[in-house]
Amino acid sequence: MLITEREKMVEDINTWAEQYGRNRSALMPILQEVQKKYYRISDYAMQEIADLLGIHPVEVYGVVSFYSFLDDKPKGKFIIRLCQTISCDMVGKDRVARQLENDLGVGFGQTTADGIFTLEWANCLGMCDQGPAMLVNDQVFTRLTPAKVNEIIDGCRRALSHYATQRKEVHAL
């Protein structure tokens, strides 16, 4: 990470700490903000947060590693989480999974080489009556079919290039 980006992140973390409070109960919201904006919570970020909240970095690390939606390693811009739990399993999540792997060219737990997609399993998404279901970042997609996932992936790519042309830049990953 470049120094300027790091400084920006420190500034952000400070802002969030002011917003949520400089105490341990602000930890989760701050981590969620960092995750959302920077797609991961780096070692540097963890130490910075620990320092602001007066706790040990290893405690932050313990928390980050506990929650499925917080990552210390880099993830893609779009995290696709396919529900693997029973109701979705019974209506064909395996075939949807296979097609996701085929279309993204990576397996579950992996990130595409261009850093755009991360494919993961999720446990029950609460869409059991409309399965198979998956989350793409915060957005939920239901009644998936193998054919449908490709459209969704294309949609993500289009959204990204639209965003890029708007901003005339793609953030360095």
């Binding site: 739990t85 109701s87 029950c124």
Partner: peptide
Amino acid sequence: DEGEPGTFKDR
């Protein structure tokens, strides 16, 4: 924190 498999009433 509705997470029990098969539960979606809270949503």
